[in-house]
């Protein structure tokens, strides 16, 4: 369902802003549990709520529903079968060290996503 992806987008934008769930929930005047449900896609967001979120998180409405921008984080839809996957910790660390600050932030968000997905599936 679309609202799971929207929830993930909210989480990514919130973390990029350095906000905790409690911080953002307070700004939205909702409970942290309600925000958690939004981020997990367990509760639907309606227009006035997503507009308020967009304003706080400095995003356009399309950011939350644009499939391409989440695929950038998740790799969904891409064929990775022929791509080299680094196996050694050393190689991984070398590549991380070569990243810019912004790229490191993106990697951090992606790791958050993987952890979130793992916890969700556990």
């Amino acid at each position: 369902m679309g609202f799971k992806k929207i929830g993930k987008k909210i989480q990514l934008a919130r973390e990029a802003k350095g906000l905790t769930q409690s911080d953002l929930a307070e700004k939205l005047a909702i409970t942290q549990a309600a925000l958690s449900n939004y981020e997990l896609g367990k509760r639907r967001l309606y227009l006035h709520q997503i507009q308020k979120l967009a304003e706080i998180l400095d995003k356009h409405l399309n950011y939350f529903i644009d499939d391409e921008s989440i695929d950038r984080y998740t790799g969904a839809g891409q064929d990775i079968s022929n791509k080299k996957i680094p196996l050694s910790n050393e190689e991984i660390m070398t590549r991380i060290c070569a990243l810019t600050g912004e790229e490191t932030q993106l990697l951090s968000e992606f790791l958050d996503f993987l952890e979130w997905r793992k916890n969700k599936n556990d």
Binding site: L45, Y46, L47, I50, Q51, H60, L61, I65
Partner: peptide, 12 residues
């Protein structure tokens, strides 16, 4: 509504 609001409007 604002541009890009159609999906949320439809669902609501």
């Amino acid at each position: 509504g604002d541009e890009g609001s159609g999906y949320f409007l439809l669902m609501e």
